[in-house]
Each structure stands twice: as C-alpha cells, then as structure tokens.
Nucleic acid binder design. Structure first.
Length: 713
DNA sequence: GTGCGAGTATGA
DNA sequence: CATACTCGCACC
C-alpha cells in the first residue's frame, strides 16, 4: 500500500510541509498523488469539514492546499479530500498559515468548485442549529446547502463583477393591509429604518388580494428591500408560495425576488439558490428548505402559520423553521415576523417574555372581518331525521349550507382523509377495539365488517369492551364519503374535494361544495359563503399534547377563508359539546386566538410541558437507551421520564399479522426534561453521547430527538 | 465507513 | 516462534 510506505518514510520528521514535498519527489509519486507538488505560498492549510456521517468525526480536519489550488480552495468552497482511505466531499471552513495537527497533512484532492456556497453567516447559523438540536454540523449543512448542479453554476452569470442585473431601487410601499393593525405601522417603520423589530402577527381574514396575508407579507418584505436589505419569507406549502409570489410580483415587478421550493427540480432550484447566493436577488419566498437561503444583508425573516408541522424539517436533526429563523434574526440583526390566524404556544412564550411584540387587530375589527361562528353540536338523533341525516350533518349546519349555496361556495372541513378511518361504539363512544388484540377497528371501502388495523382480523361480531354494545359508528367520516353523501344531499351542486395527494389551490365564486382536509382548503374567489367544520370532537380528542392548539389553528385556517360577518359569512362548528363552554370553542366563536393561547401557555407552565421546558427523546432497545443516557452524563437538573414502550406513529396500518422474519427488539422511549436555561447543557451532553457511541461503534441504534413534540411528536 | 497496530489465539 | 485472527481506535 503506497500510503503505508509514505508513513514509514515520514515518521518522526518534524516539518510537515517540506516533508510531503520531499516524499512526493523522492518517491516519484507526484504522478500517483497528482496534487502534491507544492503547497500554496499563503495559508497552505485548509480546515475542511468532511462529510462522513459520523458524529465523532463531525469536526474540521486540516489539509494541505496544493499551490495549484491556492486561489480556488477558498473558505466556503466545496472540495474533495482523501479521508480514511476514500474520497469524500467537504467544505473548506478556513484557510490558515500553520497546522495544529501534529501528523502529516494530506493534500486536498480537488476543488469541486470555487463558488463560495457556504457563507460565513450560514456556517455560523448551521453551527448554532446543530448545537441546538444535538445534531451534526454535516447534517445541518446538507439541509442548508443544496447539492451542486454544475450546469446551473456555469450558465448563470457571475457574482457582483457582473453587477446589479436589474436591481432597481425599491421604493417603500404603503402599509396596505397593515393599516388594520394598531401596531402594524410601527413595525414597518422599524423595518424601514433598518432596526430589528420582532412581531407575532395575528392576521385578519381577508378575501381580497389587496388585504390578504400574502399581500401583508409582501409589504413587509418590500419595506426591508426599500431599506436596502434582504428579506426571506417561509410558508408551509407551494400554494402559499404561489400566493406570496404573486403578491411580491405585483409590488416589486419582475426579477426582484425568487422562489425556492422542493418541487422545482434540481437545476431550477440550484439556479434560484445561486441567484440568492450571488446577490442577484435579495428577496426569497419558499418552503421550509428556504429557511437557510443565503440572502445577503438579511433585513427581515418572516414565516406563516407557525403551528403547521411541515415547518419542521423531516431530516435529522429536525430543525423547526421557528428556531432557525429566530436564530438568523438574532445573528444577522434582522427583523422577525411570524404570522398566522392562530398563534402557537411557542410564539406566545416569546410574546410574554417581551422578545416579540404582538400585532393584532382590535376586537371590533376582528368581529367584522371574521365570519359569524355558530356551534351546532353533534346533532341529536331527532335532529338527524331530516335531509341532513344522510350527510351526517347537524341540521343547523345543513340549513347554513343550504342558504349559503345561494350566495357562493361552501367549504366543508373534515378532520381526516380516507374512508371511515376509525370506529367507535355507537352507545358509549369508546373507540372500537379488536376483540383479539385490542387494536383499532376500521372500515375500509368495500369491507362488509370492520377490520383490525393491527392484526387484520375481521370483527364480524363486535362487542364493546366497556359497555357491551354491539353497534359501531364511524368516528370520522372521511372526505370521500362526505363528498358522496353531500353530493346526494344537495343535488345539482358541483362537489370538489381537496386533500392529500390532490390539493386544489382555488375555486371560483360560483356555488359549489368544497370538501377539504385541514391545510388543503382551496382559496375561494371572494371567500366562502359558509364553512362547516365537521367532527370537531375528533380534532379535539387527538391524544397529542397540542391537540387544542392544533384544533383551533385548523378551524381558524378554514374559517378565515370565509366571508366576514360584515358580508354575511358564517362558520359552523359541528360536533363540539354544546352543554358546556370549552375555551377552545369560545376562542373560535370570539375569534380570539390570543386569549386562548395565553391560557394554553399558562397550562403548559403549570405542567412543565413544552415549550416552557426543553425536552429530548431517546428511542431504542431498553438496555441501549439505558447505557446511552448514562454515557451522556446529564446535568443534575435533567429529569428522566420513562422509559415507556415506543410505538412509532402510523405503524401497523394496513395488512396484518406480524409475519416479519427477524423480530426487531422491542424499543422504549425515554424522555428527558429540563429548564430552558439548561437546554444547551442537555443538548451538549447528548451531542457528546452520540459522538462517544459512534466512536465505539455501538450496534444498537439509539435515536435522539430534541423538541420531540414539534411536528408529529 | 476503512485501515492499521496491538494484542491474542492458534498451530508447526 | 510464526502466522492468523479480533479488537479498538484514528482518520488531518
């Protein structure tokens, strides 16, 4: 092995640089190691972050810069280096005059491209994000820097040398939609003067393009551009990107902003990203991956609908847009704007700590802009006699839909997609369980009898385990079934559906029924005449920590697409208890999400639940988790909850019996909880633990997730 | 991950 | 005593 020969020849010698040269020429190896002729004159040492996915190797290694690469291997450039016997990708983080490493330095093998794809600011951001989530810098960089597309890099005109493609001076826009919020003008003025204000904005429903939330986002971004700084807007999905894109277009004209979404395809995406990197555009709107976009001189970060779980990255270390953009705002002195129809407890916490200012409309304005909200309850059996019975609708909802259909489209939000997804006892409402394994029973299309989702057995004779009842009812009527039934109930009215896989962006102002799952509601021209929120109890009863918060967010999101009370708009909440007033329901009726989230946060404080504490979750075989947590050397303040059996979300759906050959060992989850102040100590301990486990090549996988309640939990 | 040295088992 | 293997850990 040639490397071995070199090692022997060089061991014990002092000066590394001359030595590499000496070896290369003495052995006549310059042909085999092409780059090793001579080291660069200036700063011959490059700190390279190598991309080997191992936590204990997640640090820079020093390489020698051959003179031929002296001007190309700049900090931020992609390089290829020899590492542990194979060629790996890496980023140059720094150039230095001397090495710290005692041994011999290997030369860089190749500068993939001298393009500075990792800017100092993005690097700092990624380091903070990695630390916050106990992840590796390599993992975060993979999220932040898209894979190179050589053609895109070549075809796009160069950086500043080419100078100012079409960047006209942007003039400060009028406040537009912000005029409806008492604190709106002040926020914009601070952005305009280059300050770093921070705001949580509770948006009013708006059915016209000039007053809706995308318009307001565009005004905020334009204000930052007018102040000579950049802007970054992150939204949950590509329909939202389209809307903000259009709003920016009408305010800025062409070429002033760029879209960044996953669905663009590699070349288009990299081209757009390069335009941002090279400073051709300073305004970005995109989905969550855009949160790392290297916008120059960032003056504003903004995101919409904080509670939407697609704003949590689904790749390790699972950073949330909220945390990344807040960090960016702090690091880069940028303004922060988080908007939505609802507010999450996380953001409420910022508001209550004074870090972020609340921007809300006055109650009287809200009442006119929002639809009138009616609570229809579940609908008694008596109520279900009329035509509404066929559609599983309470009669109040049916009447509201009937009269609204004379005026325009009607939106019907159903909690989940699918066809009668789960069942409960007709009499006592307990979830229907399989008699054999206690798994959930479900009725799929075409099935005559309910089937167990876990073991697949068919429940021909159901008997409720708590009351002995023999009849099941569908817990949630899926969108498709609802569409069929409503179509029959309102003959002649067109029915649209919008849900996972097939999402409608918008519908016309003509009368129609629009059945949609949460988050997939199309926008209606001039707003819906009425909105029905079905099976409210199913949204409220979800067993997650944030069920209420999430239910309100979904209801407000759909109701906000409805015409305001001033224009006769009405929203009907169906299936909520009517005999008692739940704060959740009251918040919707009063259109007061701020009041609700304050209560919700107070409760979290009381119970020491996120976001008022920092949590992390370890998942793996019992002994491995046990050893891992001991290895971490957790601070004393960290509380251990569990271990409990771990049931992955959405597992065991579909087919049936556990026929898998190699039994995977049963896994447990251990939750760790500490104060927010001790969060960094907790994540540092977890990072250390992962590094040691990786160095020891631990066999058993132990998953680590910080903020496990973010996203799906 | 891969490669290598140290340490240990194994066999003539 | 020589050779074959495993184990642990460094990798720049």
């Amino acid at each position: 092995m040639q490397n071995k020969g070199q090692n022997e020849a060089t061991d014990g010698l002092g000066e590394q640089l001359s030595l590499v040269r000496a070896v290369a020429s003495a052995r006549g190896r310059s042909r085999l190691l092409p780059a090793v002729h001579e080291a660069a004159e200036v700063d011959p040492v490059a700190l390279v972050l190598v991309d080997v996915g191992l936590p204990h190797l997640d640090r820079p290694f020093e390489y020698l810069v051959p003179v031929t690469m002296a001007d190309l291997a700049v900090p931020g450039a992609r390089v290829r280096v020899r590492f542990a016997g194979q060629d790996v990708d890496g980023f140059v983080l720094e150039r230095r005059a001397t090495a710290v490493h005692e041994g011999k330095l290997a030369p860089l093998r190749r500068v993939v491209s001298p393009e500075v794809v990792l800017t100092p600011r993005v690097l700092t951001l990624c380091q903070e994000v990695a630390a916050r989530y106990a992840g590796t810098l390599g993992d975060v960089l993979r999220l932040a820097v898209p894979p190179r597309h050589a053609t895109a890099e070549k075809n796009l005109p160069g950086a500043e040398e080419k100078q100012a493609p079409v960047r006209q001076a942007v003039t400060s826009p009028s406040p537009g939609p912000w005029a409806r919020y008492p604190a709106g003008g002040s926020f914009l003025r601070h952005v305009a003067s280059g300050d770093a204000p921070a705001a949580s904005w509770l948006a009013l429903p708006g059915q016209q393009a000039e007053e809706d939330w995308p318009a307001a986002m565009a005004v905020a971004a334009t204000t930052s551009l007018a102040a000579g700084r950049g802007a970054l807007i992150v939204v949950p999905d590509h329909r939202d990107v389209d809307r903000v894109d259009a709003a920016l277009q009408s305010l800025l004209g062409a070429g002033q902003h760029v879209r960044l979404t996953a669905g663009q395809g590699p070349q288009a995406r990299y081209t757009a990203w390069l335009k941002v990197l090279r400073g051709h555009v300073r305004c970005v709107v995109g989905t969550r991956a855009a949160m790392f976009a290297p916008v120059r001189d960032l003056g504003l970060v903004a995101w919409w609908d904080d509670g939407d779980d697609v704003l949590v990255e689904q790749r390790a270390p699972y950073p949330a847009v909220r945390e990344v953009l807040r960090t960016r705002a702090r690091l880069e002195g940028a303004a922060l704007l988080t908007g939505g129809f609802a507010r999450t407890t996380s953001v409420q916490q910022w508001v209550e700590s004074g870090e972020v200012r609340s921007v809300v409309a006055e109650a009287a304005v809200r009442r006119l802009a929002a639809p009138r909200v009616v609570v229809a309850g579940e609908g008694t059996d008596a109520e279900r006699d009329g035509p509404s019975a066929h559609a599983h609708l309470p009669s109040a909802a049916w009447r509201a839909a009937k009269s609204a259909l004379l005026l325009g489209p009607v939106l019907i939000q159903v909690p989940r997609r699918g066809y009668l997804p789960s069942l409960s006892c007709q009499t006592c409402r307990e979830p229907a369980r399989c008699g054999r394994c206690h798994g959930p029973l479900a009725l799929d299309a075409g099935d005559a009898a309910p089937t167990c989702r876990w073991c697949g057995s068919v429940a021909t004779a159901f008997e409720c385990s708590s009351c002995g009842g023999h009849r099941v009812r569908s817990s949630v009527v899926g969108a498709r079934r609802t569409a069929e039934e409503l179509g029959r109930t309102f003959p002649g009215v067109p029915v649209h559906t919008s849900g996972a896989g097939d999402v409608l962006a918008s519908v016309s102002g003509q009368p129609s029924l629009v059945i949609a799952t949460p988050g997939a509601e199309p926008v209606a021209e001039n707003g819906y005449a009425a909105t029905l929120l079905l099976d409210a109890w199913a949204s409220m009863d979800r067993p997650t920590l944030d069920a209420s918060e999430e239910a309100l967010r979904r209801w407000l999101g759909a109701a906000a697409l409805t015409r305001g009370a001033a224009d006769g708009g009405v929203a009907v909440l169906c299936g909520a208890p009517t005999h008692t007033t739940l704060p959740l329901v009251e918040a919707l009726v009063r259109w007061d999400p701020e009041w609700f989230v304050a209560r919700e946060l107070a409760e979290r404080v009381e119970l020491s639940l996120p976001p008022t504490v920092r949590m992390a979750r370890l998942v793996g075989p019992r002994v491995a988790v046990q050893r891992a947590v001991e290895l971490a050397g957790l601070p004393d303040s960290v509380e251990r909850l569990g271990p409990l059996p771990w049931a992955p979300v959405g597992a065991a759906a579909g087919t049936g019996a556990p026929v898998t050959g190699g039994e995977p060992p049963p896994r447990v989850q251990l939750l760790l909880r500490t104060s927010l102040d001790d969060g960094p100590a907790l994540t540092a301990a977890l990072t250390h633990m992962k590094a040691v486990r990786s160095a020891h090549k631990e066999r058993e996988p132990v998953g680590v997730r910080v903020d496990p309640m973010d996203g799906l939990g």
